[in-house]
Amino acid sequence: MEDVSYSKGIYTAVASVRPMNAGQYQGLVSLARDDGEELENAIYEVDSASGTPEEALEEAKALAHRLLGELEL
């Protein structure tokens, strides 16, 4: 499954999926600044596991949008 990238100002969020135990999947979001400054929390995890990679990616995309929406530019 291919990662999905979103940008807002100098920030880029990349939504991805990782397999977990028992056939479950978890969505992840990597948040970075394009100017090279380090972020305190660069990786965010979706709270719940999903049964398919597609569901996990949808959850990760929603988290990416939420994180970018909370940023002050």
Rank of each mutant, 00 (worst) to 15 (best):
E2C: 02
E2Y: 01
D3F: 00
D3A: 12
V4N: 01
S5N: 10
S5E: 15
S5T: 15
Y6K: 03
Y6S: 03
Y6W: 00
S7N: 09
K8E: 07
K8V: 05
G9H: 12
G9A: 05
G9R: 10
I10P: 05
Y11G: 05
Y11K: 07
A15T: 09
A15R: 06
A15L: 10
S16Y: 01
S16T: 15
V17M: 13
V17I: 14
P19M: 10
M20Q: 11
N21H: 04
N21R: 10
A22Q: 13
A22L: 14
A22P: 00
Y25M: 02
V29P: 03
S30L: 12
A32T: 11
A32S: 13
D34P: 00
D34C: 02
D35Q: 10
D35P: 12
G36A: 04
G36M: 00
E37F: 01
E38W: 13
L39C: 07
L39K: 08
A42C: 06
I43Y: 00
I43K: 04
Y44C: 06
E45R: 14
D47L: 07
D47P: 05
S48G: 04
S48W: 01
S48L: 09
S48Q: 12
A49W: 01
G51I: 01
T52R: 06
T52I: 01
T52F: 02
T52P: 08
P53C: 05
P53T: 09
P53K: 07
P53I: 02
P53E: 13
E54G: 10
E55T: 01
A56T: 06
L57C: 14
L57D: 14
E59A: 13
E59H: 09
A60Q: 07
A60T: 09
K61Y: 03
L63H: 02
A64E: 01
A64S: 05
H65S: 12
R66Q: 13
L68V: 04
E70Y: 01
E70R: 12
L71R: 14
L71G: 03
L71M: 14
E72I: 12
E72Y: 03
E72C: 02
L73Y: 05
